[in-house]
């Protein structure tokens, strides 16, 4: 199996641990990832606030580069990249007037795009191309005793729910169970983490993070597994502020690929697990006894 690989900016910065775990895990499964040559920022949510045609041009340059390089499919692990590249593709087919402008802009850079390269998410590839059985066979340390809250966030399932349900997705749940973990029922699995609002309007953004962590703890989770660098950052890095504003709801938030690596027997340090603010450890307690990371929630006043 072979895919073009679009890392995106976050995986080179705050989300380094995502790439650090994705690459060895995919290698372990025999999947070849070829990084897209000279890829540019997808535009994320911010560029859409500037101009939608420019935003499509920006994203389409990557799709055109992928076509030029002969990548049959493009893997986009970051949720924002995944959404924006798919969105550009949708617009390309949906709005002929915009398509003309995008094509002309690409031409100015000597590129062309037909609108065909599929943009895939690692979860999609793992479940539908690799298959759970093949993954199960690679597990050497089953994640026994780990109670995982699977956090999908918004942008891989909405608005283009191509490989899973928009509000009740299950692909990561299946994957975690295949690794031997227990998945807790956590209805907030596709609720928003606040995105960049945690930095720009902390009162609003951090409250969303607080609610997510608090509910995960209440449901007996001892780790949150995520697919998005921004979700991981928000759920991991702001616990000091959250404690100051409300209460302590510390719980480790790791990438699903990091948990895969642990189950495959790879070394934690080779999976970027040392980069988390809230340290992650495999629980020592038996599986039927939920181990709660951080301080347990004690009858908090709800505000």
């Amino acid at each position: 199996m072979k895919y073009g690989y679009f890392p995106g900016c976050s995986l080179r910065g705050t989300g380094r641990a995502y790439e650090a775990s994705l690459l060895p895990v995919f290698r372990h499964l025999g999947i070849q990832l070829d990084e897209l040559e000279d890829w540019n920022c997808c535009g994320a949510t911010a560029y859409m606030s500037i101009d939608e045609t420019s935003a499509c041009v920006l994203a389409s340059r990557n799709l055109a580069l992928a076509e030029k390089a002969g990548h049959a499919q493009l893997l986009a692990p970051c949720s924002a990249c995944y959404l924006v590249l798919n969105k550009a593709k949708h617009y390309f087919h949906e709005y002929p007037a915009m398509t003309v402008q995008v094509k002309r802009a690409l031409q100015r850079g000597g590129l062309a795009y037909s609108g065909n390269t599929p943009v895939r998410h690692p979860l999609d590839v793992l479940i539908h191309d690799v298959g759970l059985e093949a993954i199960r066979q690679k597990v050497v340390h089953p994640l026994k005793g780990l109670r995982v809250a699977c956090y999908y966030g918004c942008q891989i399932v909405r608005p283009y729910a191509t490989f899973d349900d928009a509000c009740e997705p299950t692909t990561m749940d299946q994957l975690m169970e295949a690794l031997g973990a227990t998945v807790v029922r956590w209805p907030l699995k596709t609720k928003c983490c606040g995105g960049s609002l945690t930095g720009t309007i902390p009162e609003a953004g951090l409250r969303l993070v607080y609610i997510l962590c608090k509910e995960a703890l209440k449901r007996g989770a001892n780790v949150i597994a995520t697919v998005c660098p921004l979700c991981q950052f928000n759920l991991d890095a702001y616990h000091h502020d959250i404690r100051r504003r409300w209460e302590d709801v510390r719980i480790p938030t790791v990438y699903f690929t990091q948990l895969m690596g642990v189950a495959f027997g790879l070394r934690p340090v080779d999976l970027g697990l040392q980069r988390g603010f809230v340290p992650f450890q495999m629980p020592a307690s038996p599986p039927d006894e939920p181990a709660v990371a951080g301080k347990p929630v004690v009858a908090p006043p709800t505000r």
């Binding site: 918004c154 909405r158 608005p159 609720k191 928003c192």
Partner: peptide, 18 residues
Amino acid sequence: WLCASCYACSVECPRQIR
């Protein structure tokens, strides 16, 4: 400016308004 682009509204809208 408070919209975080989570697309919950777009998905739930009964008139498919984006």
